[in-house]
Design a binder for these strands. Sequence first.
DNA 1: TTGACACGTTAGATTCTCCTTACGTATTAT
DNA 2: ATAATACGTAAGGAGAATCTAACGTGTCAA
Lengths: 109, 109
Amino acid sequence: MSPVGAPPIADAFGAIAHPVRRTLVTALAGGDKPVRELAAVVTVSRPAVSQHLAVLRGVGLVSEERHGRERRYRLHPERLDEVRTWMHALDRFWDHRLDLLAQHLEENP
Amino acid sequence: MSPVGAPPIADAFGAIAHPVRRTLVTALAGGDKPVRELAAVVTVSRPAVSQHLAVLRGVGLVSEERHGRERRYRLHPERLDEVRTWMHALDRFWDHRLDLLAQHLEENP
DNA sequence: TTGACACGTTAGATTCTCCTTACGTATTAT
DNA sequence: ATAATACGTAAGGAGAATCTAACGTGTCAA
């Protein structure tokens, strides 16, 4: 009655799920760049790059700034804190488990 | 001529892109658990959980171990190093940019 | 003014995700 | 032996992602 499809990309996790978008993010980490330059480091067409950039902009990972007939894109790495925070929380859980294991081994010869 | 669709989930990035799978991973960080218990912390049906677990298993993030009629799932957090490594590489790029900025400001009054 | 350039957007095709509802199999309980 | 439990898998469908090609808009150059 109400089957469901794939969810739209709504956060940083979804944004970095695609290898092309990761490449774009990595390139932008080295400095702001126009689309022409970004398209050069990737194997897909330029319109595809524009679409990927739109996804990244949708989740706030990049912003655009017009410069003449170019549009320079800028990375906002703080938007990846969402991912960092989740991974750190996992680490805390994991460390706690290791503590429990050590404690268990200490009490059992 | 050769239009393309969405790419299949092939790595840890794709695996953690779905909120339900993140919840499952978080739950498993607290210890190995059978599917019944995992399905309890999520809003989708139990078969859907099985399918999500299959995705996680496909990228090596979890493994299964038969225990009677249960199947306990175990997390392998080292498979998230792929993500960690990428984020750290980003940080290095970013730090380098900050260094360049500081240097520039020092040389220009 | 005309042409080249940089970029976004639309249209259309294809493929994957992701859900629920059946169904099948193995194991435990009665 | 029979029933109940735990789980996976197949079938089917809605929806989203992702690509290329074509087109439109604004900017610089000659």
